[in-house]
Amino acid sequence: MTLLESQPMRRGALIIVEGLDRAGKSSQCELLRDQLLTKGHAVEYIRFPDRTTPIGKLIDSYLRNASHQDDHSIHLLFSANRWELAKHIQDTVANGTTVIVDRYSYSGAVYSAAKANPTLSLEWAWQPEVGLPRPDICLFLSISPEEAAKRGGFGAERYENETMQSRVRQLFGTLLDRQRDDVCVIDAGRTVDEVSEEIVDVAVKCISRLDAIGPLRALGPLEITH
């Protein structure tokens, strides 16, 4: 056996991109994917909700206001949509490919809790996420609801209104504060190139320290001090 053959395969990173609607997440995910590819990394880009699956099609109908769901039911569908791809994410990362995910458990929990349903707290919303692959880094694109509302296409889907987005921003702060070691806040109010440059820098540094992080971890319970 050669020295090269005896070395275990180095895993990829799990990089999550989160933020308010119209913060530029999808564009930045695509730019990050392209930049990492040019640097020689194997990369896969996943976007949640995955609207191509049976569960995803139900979610798509709901988001387009073409159907209605109980708050708890739709939340569990969003979570199930992530669980549909959990093993694929684990296997892909283990095989040396970095996975970039546009929206993840953080969005799932805060958007449901932001509805202010008294029986759907942030803690309740987080429970179905426990056990899903935990990101090595969560990049939160920070932008004010007012600035987001000025961007093209705002208001096309159910959650895109300023009242909802303000609640979402507040809850993101609460949730991400509990995940501080894995979070990097990015000022998304700058130019696309400026934001992309910082994101790529953070992602490359994350990939470089994977050996120190160890195997891909799992999301744990949420502890919030009231």
Rank of each mutant, 00 (worst) to 15 (best):
I186N: 01
I46R: 06
D102I: 07
P135N: 00
F140C: 09
L122P: 15
T119R: 14
W83T: 03
L210V: 02
P135Q: 00
G19Y: 09
A212V: 14
A218C: 14
L132P: 09
E194S: 03
D102C: 10
R217G: 02
R33P: 13
S121V: 01
R64V: 06
T225G: 07
K57A: 11
M9H: 07
R180C: 01
A156G: 13
D177A: 12
N65R: 15
Q165Y: 03
L171A: 03
S121H: 02
E157A: 01
L210I: 04
A149W: 14
L31G: 07
E18T: 07
A113W: 05
L32N: 03
V204I: 15
A148M: 10
Q90T: 08
H226N: 12
L122R: 11
S196P: 14
I89A: 01
T174H: 11
V43S: 04
D187C: 10
V17Y: 06
L122F: 07
L122Q: 13
I46W: 12
A13P: 12
T119F: 11
K115F: 04
E84S: 02
M164T: 04
P215G: 00
S107C: 09
L63N: 02
D102F: 15
V200P: 08
C184L: 06
L175I: 05
S144Q: 05
L77R: 02
R167L: 09
L171Y: 08
D91L: 14
F172S: 04
E146M: 07
K25F: 13
Q7M: 14
S6F: 11
F154M: 05
R82A: 11
A114I: 03
L36D: 04
P221N: 05
V93F: 04
Y106V: 15
Q170N: 10
D21V: 05
S27W: 10
D201F: 08
S79Y: 11
S208M: 14
R190Q: 15
P8W: 09
L175N: 04
L175F: 03
R178M: 08
L4P: 04
V200E: 01
L14R: 00
R169P: 05
H88P: 00
I59W: 05
S105V: 12
L76P: 06
V99D: 01
L120H: 05
L3M: 11
T163C: 00
